[in-house]
């Protein structure tokens, strides 16, 4: 039973990691590529680590919550590095598929869309 849970978690983790990397290769501008690793890879490694925690906790040597620390660390650092990368890319004026945001932010209150679709 536990082996089944661990196996499913491991497979899910590996598949998510692969999808994240796939996004990194397939998507067409830097800003969209940024989404793959920050989410899919983080959850992928997260579920691998949960699998490992479950596996070692049920091996008789007591609770193993070590892995939670790595998971926590990844979940805290992934958005920070994503934010910094996005900031660096904006700073370098990388080409974006989305309409570029103007350098001075528009007035805070407006959020309506201009294109009528």
């Amino acid at each position: 039973m536990i082996e089944l849970v661990v196996s499913v978690l491991i497979l899910a983790g590996a598949v998510f990691t692969l999808i994240g990397a796939l996004g990194l290769v397939r998507l067409r501008d830097f800003y969209t590529r940024l989404h793959g690793p920050t989410k899919a890879t983080t959850l992928g490694v997260g579920s691998l680590l949960v699998a490992s925690a479950v596996w070692f906790s049920t091996r008789g040597a007591g609770l193993s919550l070590h892995e939670v620390l790595v998971t926590l660390f990844l979940f805290i650092t992934a958005p920070v590095s994503a934010h910094l990368l996005a900031k660096a890319a904006l700073h370098q004026r990388l080409h974006s598929l989305a309409p570029e945001p103007e350098s001075q932010p528009e007035s805070a209150a407006q959020s309506e869309e201009t294109d009528a679709g």
Binding site: D29, S96, A98, P101, P105, E106, A108, S111
Partner: peptide, 8 residues
């Protein structure tokens, strides 16, 4: 893809 300004 698109950019959005979120007023805080």
């Amino acid at each position: 893809p698109g950019f959005v300004q979120l007023p805080l």
